[in-house]
Amino acid sequence: MTLLDDFLIRAALAGIGLVLAAAPLGCFVVWRRMAYFGDATAHAAILGVALALAFQTSVFGGVLVVSLVMALTVSTLSNRGFAMDTLLGVLAHSALAFGLVAVSFLHGVRVDLMAYLFGDILAVTRADLAVVWGGAALVLVLLWWRWSALLTATLNPDLAHAAGIDPRREQLVLTLALALVVAVAIKVVGALLIAALLIVPAATARAFANTPERMALAAALIGALSVIGGLQASLHYDTPTGPSIVCVAALLFLASSTAQLLLHRRRG
């Protein structure tokens, strides 16, 4: 019997692997005001699940491909100056709706839709764990490699151009990383909650950081705390695990915002 035989340990490791990749990526999502973007990509994931099951390929692969297509579409259209919120409202919810309808056509396979919408972190297998950590490692390497160029392009596209950095290429790197995180996350927290894990820890971390790197580190730490706290809470109160993790993250955000507000008032 090894450590990984315990489903709780596997769940915790899967969650932590996911937030380690989601934290720095989530910071970019927040800095670049792309929260909607994460939503659209994640909603498209359900369509990916349906297609993967229909063609009997791996769910991870299906989600990765569809998320990537969605992310690329959004990213291309946003560069063409479409009204972004409207466009995303159309794309994100249509993808979700078509996904749900497509799933209903799948006869013969019984699809536990809830598991894909909200994840089933307690059912994570060793193979899933390998996928999560492999994907997370890939995202981290990608971000590490492009970090400085990404930050420069995030600050100002012209500044990037002048330094010989192509901001569109950096946007593509983020798009790819986002699709990877969504594909990895679908098993852990599901399509509807992944956007929360991207944004909430990063937003919480803002209060404790004076540089971009510290914000990313703090976000990872806060994400890990949320995973562990959420798992404990779901065991204790017998609540669904994925949503419990997000609830803990949200409570941490509330606490940090309140603390910051009080501190500010005392100073000012």
């Binding site: 400085s148 420069t152 600050l155 500044l159 990037a160 950081a209 540089t211 971009p212 914000m215």
Partner: peptide, 28 residues
């Protein structure tokens, strides 16, 4: 080698950035 000073640079309030860190962009 071009040094570029843009017309205005808006830094999103969610992005923490010290002067020292800013000077490290894009090369440390």
């Amino acid at each position: 080698r071009i040094g570029y000073v843009p017309q205005k640079l808006h830094i999103d309030p969610t992005l923490p950035m010290t002067v020292r860190r800013f000077l490290d962009l894009p090369v440390r």
